[in-house]
């Protein structure tokens, strides 16, 4: 399968879930696991451009598919995707655990509906649980990203020179 633009080939046990293939075989640990029941959405990735819960897809089912994980969203130059940028700008994450899945769900949502209403955002994210933010700032970030045209922004290309506004500071100097 192709993951973030790179092609991989592995013999795997049929019971290996896509999420563990990504995490343990490919070492792409950005995609998280939060539940056993397809409820929480922390493991959301794009499969052929659409959001899926990778805990409920067998790796063998994704044979030949094109997968995008959170690691593949920002540009190779380190520029965040506009959705990531909006999450940061609007403080749409705290502990960060649901964030990769949430961001991938938003990516899929905005590709299908580039200019959603607040209600459409809220229902469009019904498959992703967050325990920290109360969703307020996530919804705000999605609406801001949509307004900035994030729905048509290319994946893996970053923001092409866009800079954060307001008090944002570049770089992750901490720890």
């Amino acid at each position: 399968m192709t993951v973030n633009g790179k092609t991989y080939e592995h013999e795997v046990e049929p019971r290996l879930l896509l999420v563990y293939y990504l995490r343990e075989v490919l070492g792409l640990t950005g995609t998280n696991v939060g539940c056993d029941t397809t409820s929480c959405g922390a493991c959301t990735v794009l499969l052929n451009g659409e959001s899926v819960k990778s805990c409920t897809v067998l790796a063998v089912q994704a044979d030949g598919a094109d997968i995008t994980t959170i690691e593949g969203l920002a540009g190779p130059d380190g520029k965040l995707h506009p959705i990531q940028e909006a999450f940061r700008e609007h403080h749409a994450l705290q502990c960060g655990y649901c964030t990769p899945g949430m961001v991938m769900a938003v990516t899929s949502l905005l590709r299908e509906n580039p200019h959603p209403s607040e209600d459409q955002v809220r229902f469009g994210l019904e498959g992703n649980l967050c325990r920290c933010t109360g969703y307020h700032n996530i919804v705000k970030a999605v609406l801001a990203a949509a307004a900035a045209g994030a729905g048509s922004a290319p994946i893996g290309a970053g923001t092409a020179g866009a800079v954060p506004t307001g008090g944002a500071v570049a770089g992750g100097g901490a720890r």
Binding site: G30, L80, G171, G172
Partner: peptide
């Protein structure tokens, strides 16, 4: 002023968490 106490500085933690770079226990190899 941006970055001073009382300002709405966006988080320094975020880039790592937004890109999957953050390492939780189960991510450690």
């Amino acid at each position: 002023a941006a970055g001073t106490v009382g300002s709405r500085l966006t988080r320094l933690e975020d880039p790592a968490l937004l890109t999957g770079e953050g390492r939780y226990v189960d991510d450690l190899a």
